[in-house]
Amino acid sequence: MWSMQKGLRLLLLSILIGPLAAVGSQATPLEQPTGDVLLTVTGAIENTNAPGQARFDRAMLEALPQHSFDTITPWTDGKHQYEGVLLKELLQQLGAKGSKVVAHALNDYHSVIDLDPIRNYPVMIAIRADGKPMRIRDKGPLWILYPMSDYPELNHQRHHPAMVWQLNRLEVQP
């Protein structure tokens, strides 16, 4: 009975985050950051480089597959090009098992991001805007951005709080 329940739970889990886990488990172990740590990931993750944590410096983040899109935002004028890593791929890399991510910012702001609704969107942790690293003054150094121009439905008040600028910590919740 117990094993059945356990099996069922595993099945459910793998349905939910199966794709994440599959890639994550094959990923290479994390190296240690050498520069300033820009991002710390905690919570339900498998790959770590510190007790319970995965710490990234800029180089590590830039070593991950890079993506880019152009988008407008309610907090900027005009369209800009943003480059960075996809949230999805970062979580896969860490073998994250969770349905939610709490994104914390330098200014102590935080926002809970439900992963399921954005599963099919290339949600990005932007590292560069218009090819340049972002300063804190320009909502950097990391900014969670939704491709609002490519997917206008994402440009909705419902999603705006999730686009955390000055991101410095992610907490993966089961």
Partner: peptide, 20 residues
């Protein structure tokens, strides 16, 4: 300076974009 940058950033947010 982090606090100053954050304040700066807040001013940026208020100064540009549709939301503010």
């Amino acid at each position: 300076m982090l606090r100053f940058d954050l304040l700066w950033s807040r001013m940026e947010v208020l100064s540009i974009g549709t939301e503010a």
